[in-house]
Design a protein around this nucleic acid. Structure first.
Lengths: 131, 131
DNA sequence: CTTACTGTACTATTAATCTAATACAGTTCA
DNA sequence: TGAACTGTATTAGATTAATAGTACAGTAAG
């Protein structure tokens, strides 16, 4: 089930693109699987169909999906290959950014490692409870 | 030296706010230190003075700085206390987000830990070279 | 006082995102 | 054929971020 954060600075269409890419990489979406219809997803996410359409349009331009007018949007055959290429750089970039962030807050290498492992071992129920 | 990324989805005024908060937390900016003038910083960052003014205005509203018209903007006395409160939740939230992100890409706990430590031990010169 | 800085305020304009409403074209099925 | 789905296209409007330009007010030094 896809979620979007309307209060985020990240555009909604970007959030949608990212969510589908993750599902493709995980294998929850396989080649030739049918994506939810533009109108259905827009209704479910309480957003405008145009916003979903933009996400799908860009996913198609990037080669992750293909569309059949009148039928729907489907995961492309080489989506898995594309995601393998993207996934590495996406995760590495994300990790590098958070490390850079922590350093700018004055944390040393060991402090960063300790805090990260602490959060990694924090049960999901406790996350987001303010701290 | 503050940097901003004009191609980021994060608004420039938000990036500026965050940068000063980091400097305050690290102690590079101490209470009653003078911030760069609005016009100077705008010139340095190649952005509009109004954008810097908004960042300063919000930093003042949040209690991190105070302004003396005709003189400048100064770090407030309780900025350090405010940052200690903010810093914990900011870093924890950032770490939790990246962990959540990695999990959505299908990584297990051990894979996340291994990749993170790999990036943590990557010399800065290698970061951002595509990979 | 004058000059040159400070922050503040305001209007106008551009660009991007998102919404809203409508229309059109292809597919499927009764 | 016709109804109910698909994606696509277009126009219009609201909002926000950022720019550009101007003007005003307080401070400090010559």
């Amino acid at each position: 089930m896809i979620k979007v954060d309307t209060s985020s600075f990240i555009p909604i269409y970007e959030q949608i693109k990212k969510e589908f890419k993750k599902e493709i990489f995980r294998g929850d979406l396989k080649p030739n699987d049918l994506l939810p219809s533009i109108r259905d997803l827009a209704t479910e996410l309480l957003i405008n169909p145009n916003t979903v359409a933009r996400a799908y349009r860009e996913l198609e331009m990037e080669g992750f999906i293909y569309t059949r007018k009148g039928k729907g949007c489907y995961v492309s055959d080489d989506s898995t290959r594309l995601m393998k290429e993207e996934r590495k750089s996406i995760l590495i970039q994300t990790f590098d950014e958070v490390i850079e962030e922590a350093k700018k807050y004055g944390l040393g290498r060991e402090e960063i490692k300790r805090l990260f492992e602490e959060r990694l071992n924090t049960p999901p129920e406790i996350i987001g409870k303010g701290e």
